[in-house]
């Protein structure tokens, strides 16, 4: 039930942002639609309300966003330089790394974050194993590789979602 309420509130906020007016007709229609979608999909929300209301997690999320944007910018410059360099500098390979994150949603966010970091693309997740396509294999030692690929993300995601 608490998941449905969380989804209802989030849906209503997104509706109000999209319509960007406080006309009562808009609010009524938005509430009805948010209610219907929360009723249909609320059970699929992978977060628990207990975690959603914990301010410490929100604090770590706020710290995580700038870190993520910085990594994203680095990734873009890295790939842009590769595209422009005459020899392309490619040495690709698919490697596997382990993660210590427990919940599904944390693993999904780790995979997404890895896709956004320089030269790595998550291909497959099987339980705690991630298969990563790496554009330039800089190491073959599993632990060193895991450290380079995961970067700072696992630390933050464990505090936000686990």
């Amino acid at each position: 039930m608490s998941r449905r309420i969380a989804l209802f509130i989030a849906g209503l906020i997104i509706w109000l942002l999209l319509s960007w007016t406080l006309n009562y007709q808009e609010i009524i229609i938005g509430a009805v639609i948010a209610l219907i979608s929360a009723g249909m999909f609320g059970g699929y929300l992978p977060l628990e309300a207990k975690k959603l209301l914990n301010p410490v997690r929100w604090f770590w999320l706020l710290v995580y966003i700038p870190v993520f944007i910085w990594q994203c910018l680095k990734a873009n410059v890295d790939v842009a330089l590769r595209v422009l360099s005459p020899g392309l500098n490619l040495k690709p390979g698919i490697v596997k790394i382990k993660t210590s994150l427990k919940t599904e949603i944390a693993r999904v966010f780790l995979a997404n974050s890895i896709t956004m970091t320089p030269g790595t693309l998550t291909v497959e997740i099987q339980d705690d194993t991630l298969y990563i396509h790496w554009i330039e294999l800089r190491s073959t030692d599993p632990e060193e590789m895991a450290k380079m690929i995961k970067g700072p993300f696992e630390f933050f995601l464990a505090r936000i979602f686990d």
Binding site: C72, A75, N76, D78, V79, A80, V83, L88, L90, P92, I94, T115, M116, G119, L121, V123, H133, I135
Partner: peptide, 16 residues
């Protein structure tokens, strides 16, 4: 880029 996977890297990062 030479293959699907490397192209995907360019397509995801730069375009995002």
């Amino acid at each position: 880029f030479p293959d699907v996977y490397n192209r995907m890297q360019a397509a995801t990062k730069c375009v995002t």
